[in-house]
Design a protein around this nucleic acid. Structure first.
Lengths: 253, 253
DNA sequence: TTGCAAAGTGTTATTTTTACACTAAGGTTA
DNA sequence: TAACCTTAGTGTAAAAATAACACTTTGCAA
């Protein structure tokens, strides 16, 4: 780690290339996203203050490394699942006045044309405690569904990431990166509903997810819940990984 | 068009940003790709001579415009279907010796770090007659399955484009951009087999594709073929477009 | 006239999907 | 302590989709 930082700091940040991270987390209720507050604009409810965490890319970094670095600087998490969303490069994507104002405060060449390569990542919310970082005065989780506006073209990037995530869930198992080690089928069910943004029949969901053979029943019950306690499950890492690689043709909720 | 060219020529090509096009065509037998021959390397069968058409991006261009410009310079085709494959940006993606040699002959800063944004496009092969262009001494169609090696990281880009195309065919109708106006069900069948790289049951394919309600039977037969002549079909543009937008959940061959 | 090559056509068994409602367990409350 | 609330957990039947499979037709060529 330290080696890499030293190496990077000796090299130039490329003024034309940046990366932005769409960091998803799940709180057992809804899908959340980690955003930084740029701390400009008067209203505290001005969503334009919020932006995806991101930064310029060093010339010796590959794209995923750069995204991983941004994620790590912000959350101190390592080895996090990352998936490329795509490149976003409209010539005027950073030229809005409020965006330029902010860029001037943090960048050497705020007017340079920048294309950004966006990645989305899935993290366990418990693993992250919000705190500041080099490029963010503050960072926090926000419910995805509450976000209506973001800095730059970040709202568009978020929507693209959501689309990708929804596609992904159709052909690969999902949850390993978003849920704690032990979880209930109800929680997994809620996660799928949150990502797909629609309700799924409980019995059909259970039958289908169990047939995938990626879950291990821990024979351990919830305690202290004011209703029938649920069984805990964990992912069978071997089968989960196998299925991630092969994918499945039909998981068409 | 001319306006755009003039505007572009007044602006700088950004030395850090390029676009590459994976241009697919179908010859009723197999999937083909349009590649340029860099004309270096001794052996004529040295696939390393071949590269995806691509170029640096002007600072006032958005990414799709740039890809569209490259495609248009090469083929003189306009309004072609383009889909982003993603960004490719390993720091050493252009540093291979033979690649550097070529870059020196065509670029001002051959050593600059370049990330490329790749697009794939689907074109009717008949609409294109191979010819040279500003960035290509020669260009020709090659069978996708024969390609084992390309310049830079272009082979990797091709594979990523193929993956995307295969995913796409599962959820959207396809063929409009690859087939002539009139075509037979056999040709459409072969197209699907070529893209998915596996054989599909004839009767099941026909039933499924007809159920989509995107085809119009022209009540017109092939003539001069040494076997039972086939009916010609065309796409029903309205239904095709509608289905492109909604997509379908299951077309899981 | 025979042969060849691709077109065109249905049925059946299997699998997958969808829709749907009640009982069980534990804590909370009146 | 009984009634209540909340989530867990369970099965079936109808409908739809998929998969597997073989023979006849048409036109030209030999």
């Amino acid at each position: 780690m330290d080696n890499i930082k030293v190496k990077n700091s000796n090299l130039e940040l490329n003024p034309n290339l940046s990366t932005d991270c769409v960091i998803f987390g799940f709180d057992f209720e809804k899908l959340n996203i980690l955003l930084i507050d740029r701390g400009i604009g008067a209203e505290s409810n001005d969503s334009n203050r919020l932006a995806l965490p991101g930064n310029l890319i060093y010339d010796n970094e590959n794209l995923e490394m750069a995204a991983s670095r941004v994620l790590n600087e912000l959350t101190e998490l390592k080895d996090i699942y990352l998936e490329q969303v795509g490149a976003f490069g409209d010539p005027d994507r950073i030229s809005k006045e409020s965006d330029q104002e902010w860029l001037k405060s943090i960048r050497a060449k705020p007017e340079a044309r920048v294309i950004t390569v966006a990645y989305y990542s899935l993290v366990k919310m418990d693993d992250y405690a919000p705190h500041a970082s080099s490029f963010a005065k503050s960072a926090d989780w926000y419910a995805v569904n509450d976000i209506k506006l973001l800095a730059f073209d970040h709202y568009e990037i978020l929507q693209a990431a959501l689309r990708k995530l929804k596609e992904k869930i159709r052909i690969q198992p999902l949850g390993f990166n978003l849920l704690p080690e032990k979880f209930t089928l109800g929680q997994l069910h809620k996660l799928y509903e949150a990502i797909l943004d629609k309700s799924l029949d409980k019995r059909n969901f259970r039958r289908k997810i169990l047939k995938l053979d990626i879950l291990t029943n821990l024979d351990e019950k919830q305690v202290g819940v004011p209703h029938k306690p649920s069984q805990f499950f964990m992912f069978n890492e071997v089968n989960y990984k196998k299925l991630s690689e092969t994918g499945f043709d039909n998981f068409g909720f």
